[in-house]
Amino acid sequence: MFSQKFSSIVLGRHHLKPASARSLARWAAAGSGSSRTNVCRQRTRRLQSSSALLHPGARSASNTTVDPGEVRRFQLLANKWWDEQGEFAALHAMNDLRVPFVRDNLLNVHRAHHPGKPLAGLRILDVGCGGGLLTEPLGRLGADMLGVDPVEESVSVARLHSSQDPDLRDQVSYRACTLEELSEEEEEQQRAAQFDAVVASEVVEHLADLETFAISCNHVLKPGGSVFITTINKTNLSYVLGIVVAEQLLRIVPRGTHDWEKFISPEELERLLESNGFSVQSVQGMLYNPVSGAWSWTDSTSINYALHAVKRSDSPEDGSLFPEDRAEATNG
């Protein structure tokens, strides 16, 4: 009986009763970085004040994407990244969708000139790379990949795994750092934005500050660069399937992996990106079938979804949202 009900939920045929939805809503309610220049500190203060104006209902900016609790959780799982039948099995299977999603959207902008290596010549940053589950297949498509993650244990696993494949040794590299540390490092060294794309797959629902994430993505991307995000919508259905069923009943992912309060709707994520120099190109729903272990595209974004956005041409090339910062840097 349970399996029949669960199949109905997964296939979208089950609808929560109003009373149940209200109950679920009540249940759901129930590091060090690089040193900063004066210009960077001034920009940060403006960010803190403007963030409240741009997003009055959003979480307050902490100027770090790192949640210490999330770091501790993934430290305990670091040695399990490449167990395709283990805790990260769903992420392994997701490559069937997310790799073509990144590849095809980039090829719409950058025409392939290398048979078999369609992403050759492109530099891609994989944020929250974990053990390199997405970094490696993108590297095999020819991209020059840099994976960053604040969990050193995960980065060590990623380095060891990629080192065993001669085809990846010159394509893939990793750093144990955060996105904002990388962004500030480029600013302090006065280097131009270096990446053609940023990938953050199943990451934003674990971050402490999405405003800092969006600004840092803008900063490290070249003009016209892409950002690719896959994440979980904030709905009653995502709470049931993503936490109650996936974590507590079927244990598809470890208990405590997700916090429903950190989930974000496509509309909220689009507003965040649009206000930080991006133009959202597409949003597509994703559906996981725990019986077959496979992912498929769907018209509904009520659970998982993928988003592609492009850095607008009118976005400041140095990644700053505040034009006066460049004047201060010149005068100072």
Rank of each mutant, 00 (worst) to 15 (best):
V172K: 00
A158T: 08
Q284F: 10
M286S: 14
W81T: 13
V245M: 04
S7R: 01
W295I: 01
D299Y: 03
E136P: 01
R271L: 07
S296Y: 06
F101N: 09
N38E: 13
L122H: 14
L24A: 03
I9M: 02
E136D: 07
V291E: 11
H110E: 05
N95R: 13
H219F: 09
C217Q: 07
E70K: 07
L207C: 14
R251C: 09
R103K: 10
T298I: 10
L106C: 15
E202Y: 03
P68I: 10
V39Q: 15
V102D: 08
R251Q: 11
S49V: 10
S302E: 06
W82R: 01
S20Y: 05
V310Y: 04
G86D: 01
T178M: 03
A78I: 08
E205A: 06
E211Q: 10
G116M: 10
R72L: 13
S320F: 09
R103Q: 12
W297Q: 15
S296F: 04
S282T: 15
W27N: 11
D314T: 11
E84W: 08
V220K: 11
E270N: 15
R45N: 12
E261S: 14
P18Y: 08
P323F: 13
G293M: 00
V10Y: 00
E211N: 12
P316Y: 08
I232Q: 12
W295Q: 01
S154R: 09
T44I: 06
N289Y: 04
G33P: 11
V148F: 04
D209C: 06
G86S: 01
N63V: 09
S20V: 05
Y239Q: 06
G319Q: 03
G31V: 05
E180M: 03
R45G: 09
E187G: 04
K311G: 11
R46V: 12
